[in-house]
Design a protein around this nucleic acid. Sequence first.
DNA 1: GTCGAAACGCAATGATCCTTGCTTTAATCA
DNA 2: TGATTAAAGCAAGGATCATTGCGTTTCGAC
Lengths: 171, 171
Amino acid sequence: MLTAIYTSVGELVGEGADKITFPVIAERAGVNPTTLYRRWDDVNALLEEVAVAALTRDGESVPNTGSLEQDLTEWAKIIARDITRPKRARYLRAMVSARVEIVSSCPVTETRREQASKMVRRARERGETTPTVPQILDHIIAPLYHHVVFALQVDHEYARRLVRDVLAMVR
Amino acid sequence: MLTAIYTSVGELVGEGADKITFPVIAERAGVNPTTLYRRWDDVNALLEEVAVAALTRDGESVPNTGSLEQDLTEWAKIIARDITRPKRARYLRAMVSARVEIVSSCPVTETRREQASKMVRRARERGETTPTVPQILDHIIAPLYHHVVFALQVDHEYARRLVRDVLAMVR
DNA sequence: GTCGAAACGCAATGATCCTTGCTTTAATCA
DNA sequence: TGATTAAAGCAAGGATCATTGCGTTTCGAC
């Protein structure tokens, strides 16, 4: 039931459907539109829910190569590859255009923050000088998202450059 | 006529109206909905047009204080103050949720790029070592937007920190 | 001044959506 | 097992939106 609704939304987003409404979602999910109207305030609320769920269940393991530079580079490449997938990009757009209050407490950024913390902690235990976690989020994650949203190039070379930049800050 | 439509859209966006449709826009602008249906393909197209117009007519002058650090700091503060205004933030969201093709050729980022170029050029003529223009966009503009979109704090201290970070890259 | 094209207003039509009262199914607990 | 509550289906209504044909206005060219 709930999973049918989620996959219905997921498919529609994946297809780039422009008309994502409760009746459309309901028909594909094999449920009655009334159910959706009663459970969610509006389509955006449901979209947010699905987007957050899709963007957080990553299962990616945090790189652990022995050097922060390599860890961050691998990490940035993974994220770059992930968010440039059309479906993910659309989810991102959906989240951005959604209401502010929910986005502010979004688990997506929390996941990134935790991953960054882990890599930084390991590096410090090895005695490396590291940038701060906020610096990593500001100067790696933010530019990646920015490039995706504005349809600029996001490739491995770009990911590498961002990592070099952020490490250059603390040298 | 056209200005009435633009201001109508501007007001609706400013008020945070959730349902921005052609009939609603038309009524406030004092025109017939048919006109809008005929001139624009859909509401998003019109929204984009207005958003781009609103976000590009800045009239801000590029800071010229004699040092790149101060120039960038002033610049970042201006942008921070600008994009945190609720109306601008909504315009940003509207643009992001719009179609990809148009966003990619968005004049907004071009304006920022030109402003950054000007400050960098002046600094180099003074003999300063400077970051590149892409670095400035990636590590000042992108984090600012990122913070706005995810409803994180964007204040003067944050702007200062970003500038310090980007300058630390080239020292 | 007249003609013609383009844009706008008007009105009617059809489609889609949103809401709501009522019924039916499903699940929980005594 | 039987009862109570919550959730889903059903159907009808009202509302808003999108589309289109036709008449009217406006503006520029001849």
